[in-house]
């Protein structure tokens, strides 16, 4: 059993085999093998407690069928089920997705990272730059010149519809 501590000091106890899905954690455990019990505590300071909860839920779901995933020989039905589950899992607000991406990146969990990025790109799909800016609450910070001249002139066609 290992213990994860989030930035707001909450503790999460996870089976080592489950947490091993994070390559970062696996390396840390490997490094500290044979040492004292206290070394089985891992600080995940860059994420708040809501995210480890989600990450652990994700791990547990994937832990139930590790071999099938590794060998990509999952039966069609199981794959469908997992797909449905993942769709539901990632069906969350864009801020949580941001946190999940950062967590998946720092903990090195490729499948979680891919899933979250996929969902973000789904959200961004068929939206204009302005809409994306609004959803993600980004200030564009472009200078007047960039906004008026440089950006539109580079790929002007994207913003146009000539003969309509």
């Amino acid at each position: 059993m290992i213990t994860l501590i989030s930035s707001d000091k909450r503790k999460f106890h996870v089976l080592e085999e489950v947490a091993n899905q994070s390559l970062t954690i696996r390396d840390v455990i490997e490094d500290r093998r044979g040492r004292r019990r206290a070394d089985r505590i891992i600080l995940v300071t860059n994420i708040n407690s809501k995210i480890p909860e989600k990450v652990i839920v994700y791990w547990l779901r994937h832990f139930l069928m590790p071999e099938e995933i590794a060998h990509a020989s999952m039966s069609h039905k199981k794959a469908e089920k997992l797909k449905k589950w993942e769709a539901k899992f990632f069906d969350t607000d864009i801020d949580t997705l941001n946190d999940l991406i950062l967590a998946a990146d720092s903990l090195d969990i490729p499948s979680l990272f891919d899933g979250a990025c996929e969902k973000v790109s789904d959200i961004l799909k068929n939206r204009s730059a302005e809409e994306v800016g609004e959803i993600s609450k980004i200030e564009n910070e472009f200078t007047h010149e960039e906004e008026e001249e440089e950006i539109p002139s580079e790929n002007a066609w994207v913003w146009r519809n000539e003969f309509a």
């Binding site: 990025c117 790109s121 799909k125 730059a129 980004i138 200030e139 564009n140 994207v158």
Partner: peptide
């Protein structure tokens, strides 16, 4: 979102499959 590390935003952009979308993404901020 604006302060995502550059390599992460690149990885997200790689999930985008049309050039219209890609051009819009580059114009966000």
């Amino acid at each position: 979102w604006a302060n995502l590390p550059p390599d992460l935003i690149t990885l997200i952009s790689e999930k985008i499959s049309t050039n219209t979308m890609y051009v819009h993404l580059r114009a966000v901020c």
